[in-house]
């Protein structure tokens, strides 16, 4: 399989703090790629670099065979890089429907004048319904965003990212703040995305059992540097990883 997302020698520093140092990483279609490391290792920064929220200092990022290093964030999103956040980000002052329509706009870009004169596009509703069932909850489409719980919002954010029909989803700590049932549903969603739809997934997570169970490959970051990369068993056996990260978790 060809590489969907490829990072080569990516560097980023904020002032004197190095958050990415010569990072290499590849993600294939249909792969769930774990991104782990201690707090402050630069995981979220790396997602920001890939999604284009922060520009890289040097290095290159290519996506679907195209060099996207210089592309702005919205262009990358339209090319098929979706993303979720540690704290879910929705239009809090709009209802759920408007939020979902926004993701539909990414999936089916339309000229403004056509959008102005055409009827509301409801074609996404079926898919939304199916995915929400997997996510294990329900809502009225016209309800306010505030009617959802924190966990539901995090799950809905994954659902929303899937509605945009992306090639890659960057998922930032989906399990944080979720109960065990919700975590299970989140895993189900991610597996549908990767295995049934062939979406490449970059998954940041602190819950090690989740990472070890769902990931095909894992990249371990420490102080912005890749210290290990491979299948879960390899990584968990790696001395340096145990020293930097797993060891500390086990002792804790």
């Amino acid at each position: 399989m060809e590489n969907l997302l490829e990072l080569k020698k990516v560097n980023k520093r904020f002032g004197g703090v190095i958050t990415a140092l010569d990072v290499d990483m590849t993600v294939k279609a249909g792969e769930i790629h774990g991104l782990i490391g201690p707090n402050g290792a630069g995981k979220t920064t790396l997602l920001n670099l890939i999604s284009g929220i922060t520009p890289v200092d040097s290095g290159s990022i290519s996506f679907a065979g195209e060099d996207i290093t210089e592309y702005p964030a919205h262009k990358r999103a339209r090319m098929g890089i979706a993303r979720t956040f540690q704290q879910p980000r929705f239009l809090e002052r709009s209802d759920i429907e408007e939020n979902m329509l926004l993701s539909n706009d990414v999936a089916k870009p339309m000229h403004f004048f056509r959008s102005f004169f055409s009827k509301k596009d409801n074609s996404y509703i079926q898919e939304l319904d199916e995915l929400t069932r997997v996510a294990g909850f329900g809502f009225g489409l016209q309800d306010d965003m505030s009617s959802l719980t924190y966990g539901q919002k995090k799950l809905l954010e994954i659902v929303r990212s899937m509605l945009t029909h992306p090639k890659v989803i960057l998922v930032d700590e989906p399990a944080a703040g979720l109960n065990s049932v919700e975590i299970e549903n989140a895993v189900k969603l991610l597996q549908i995305a990767a295995k049934e739809r062939g979406i490449g997934i970059v998954l940041i997570e602190h819950a090690m059992d989740m990472i070890m169970n769902v990931c095909d490959n894992i990249t371990v970051l420490n102080f912005g540097q890749v210290i290990a990369c491979g299948v879960p068993d390899e990584v968990s056996a790696n001395e340096e990883v145990i020293a930097a990260y797993l060891g500390r978790e086990k002792n804790a």
Partner: peptide, 17 residues
């Protein structure tokens, strides 16, 4: 909708294309 997203959260707006 794009405008509402810019109002509520510019970063989320960029991520939504």
């Amino acid at each position: 909708r794009a405008l509402s997203s810019v109002r509520d959260n510019e970063i989320a707006a960029k991520i939504m294309g």
